[in-house]
């Protein structure tokens, strides 16, 4: 299914610096997400214009850009929470299904973490984590609970297992949401501004979990304003503006010498303080 559409992006991916805990290079050849000529508009607003992007297994890609640049929309298109108007999206070589059972099965393999956490308000933290495995994956309750507890342990909130989301701090809620997504054993994790609704102190506890995931070789697409995370965990930074990918580079290159004027301007504004 290879087409010239994404080849233009690949050189960016090939010239990254090796980073901590990286997966085996052979693994990198497996293209997990391929977007070609993706377009999306909301009424008159063109949110995405001809997006080409390839993400390989084990890669951590950070999408940054000013608000309204289309980065969240792009993230949501990958598991079809937003439909696209034109172009193709391939997940693990298969086109993204339109709807129904096939789409549900695909979504089960893609973890998603939202800006507003979206934990199920009427269920405890542990029930949040086990609902998907029990109802979608048909895993026995006891086994799901055991694995759920292990995940909560991993994100550091095992003591909150029986609390309701409203009783947790924002940082704890977001970590629970990450555990909920991980419980499905996803091939790919999408993070849609996971720290934008959090206090500075809580941002760190969520980023620590995400950095840990990145080190373990989880494939991640992260929409964020956290430049520190982009520097330390990303293999590739994708800078977007006005619904287009303006620049793709490894983080060191991007932050020290961005090649486009638009990226320089953006960085000078956010790094000025």
């Amino acid at each position: 299914m290879a087409s010239p559409g994404f080849r233009a992006v690949l050189p960016g991916a090939l010239c990254y610096n090796r980073r901590v805990g990286e997966a085996d290079p052979a693994e990198d050849k497996r293209q997990l997400v391929v977007l070609e000529g993706v377009r999306k508009s909301f009424g008159d607003l063109q949110a995405l214009r001809d997006i080409d992007l390839t993400v390989s297994a084990g890669e951590v890609v950070v999408l940054i850009g000013p608000s309204g640049s289309g980065k969240s929309t792009l993230c949501r298109c990958i598991n079809r929470l937003e439909t696209i108007d034109a172009g193709t999206i391939l997940i693990d070589g298969m086109p993204l299904p339109q709807e129904g059972k096939a789409l549900a099965r695909l979504r089960a393999d893609i973890g998603m973490v939202f800006q507003s956490f979206n934990l199920f308000a009427h269920k405890t933290v542990l029930q949040n984590v086990t609902l998907g495995p029990i109802k979608v994956r048909d895993i026995p309750k006891a086994e799901a609970a055991e694995r759920g507890m292990a995940l909560l342990e991993r994100v550091g909130i095992a003591d909150k297992a029986d609390r309701y989301p409203a009783e947790l701090s924002g940082g704890q809620q977001q970590r629970a949401a990450i555990a909920r997504a991980l419980a499905m054993d996803p091939k790919l994790m999408l993070f849609d501004e996971p720290t934008s609704a959090l206090d500075p102190e809580m941002i760190k506890e969520v980023l620590d979990v995400m950095i840990e995931l990145a080190k373990e070789g989880t494939t991640m697409i992260v929409v964020t304003h956290e430049m520190g995370f982009a520097r330390s965990a990303a293999r590739r930074v994708v800078f977007m503006d006005g619904g287009r990918i303006v620049e793709t580079a490894d983080p060191d290159t991007f932050f020290s010498s961005p090649s486009t004027e638009r990226a320089r301007d953006f960085l000078s504004k956010i790094l000025a303080h």
Binding site: L81, R107, N118, F120, L131, G132, K135, A177
Partner: peptide, 22 residues
């Protein structure tokens, strides 16, 4: 909140299940 439905969809739940469980 619509986010509840989106979170359930992202877990791979189908609409009937989302309605009943979430």
């Amino acid at each position: 909140d619509e986010g509840q439905t989106e979170a359930a969809q992202a877990l791979g739940m189908r609409s009937g299940l989302i309605m009943r469980r979430v």
